[in-house]
Amino acid sequence: MNIKKAIRDGLSIVFENFKMIPVVYIANTSLALLLALPVFSLLNNDIGYKGIRDEMTSGFNYEWWSGFSLNAEGLEKTIRPALSGGFAALFDNFELLFTGKFTSFGLMIFLFGLTYIFLNAFFNGGVIGLYADEKRTFSISRFFSLSGFYFHHFFALALTAVLLFFVFYKVIHPAIFGLIDHFSVKWMSEKAVWFLNLAGYFIIGLFILFIKIVFDYARIILVVENKESSWLCIWLAFKFMIRHILKTFGLYLILILAGLGLLLVIGFIQELFQPKTLLLLLLLMIFQQVFIILKIGLRFTFYGSQLELYRQYKPEMITVKKRRKVK
């Protein structure tokens, strides 16, 4: 019941403050455009006059790509067959989470990813600040004012999260697969080893989720409880999550399922819809941009719902605090 209510209330907050979504969408699109323009330029120069352009109008020419990729540098390396499919390029992105190979698309993409993380550390202050406010009246100035107000805390949280994930991918990730290799090295069944590895990836996923949830609640606690210490908020968030592990994970998993639903829709649209004319291409681009907007909206729904879930338990938390004080 709590999860359902939290999601309903979270959605309602997001709808009431939907004007924040375009702000973040513009940031996302602007960053992407900064790199998409040089990609257009290099592709236009490479295939604009070539015979393979006919095939590239409706499909993908593997032979061209094989040659092109042999000497590819920088952004050129990111032009790959996966872009042709409906799902493959999106799977590539999720694969990064499980492998930790964040520089596999090159340093430029990596730096843009980091920039987006810290840019959103700024925006998240405005988003959660507004959601936590009882009045919830959105205005650009108020949004940016709250973003600025919480930025140093949210930046510290984002930096801590990034560092924690760095340690995770450098220490825990290899340790998990090191153990798997150690145990399975003499196994004769190929399938058994495969499933053990799959379990390893599942554990990686749980770890990522765990860290993510802690930091989400840390931001909420920081705003709701008006805390000054980001570290303390991480600790409180950790305690909160452990105390309500089924609810916090449950909420997250339901929203992840919603995200997967969105992904399936856009994936199938892209899979079935291979535009061969400019008009159809523009139509596909509209679908894609709607997906990005919905994805940002879903992310805000995470924040809103988690905030509401936290609020549902807040009296209990206060009670706990009071008891401690009495002692």
């Binding site: 960053l31 790199l35 990609v39 592709l43 490479d46 990111t78 872009l83 390029a89 590539d92």
Partner: peptide
């Protein structure tokens, strides 16, 4: 073709 593939590329990056 370049526009088509850079649009796909941009969507991938946005995601």
């Amino acid at each position: 073709p370049a526009f088509r593939w850079s649009a796909k590329w941009m969507f991938w990056l946005q995601h």
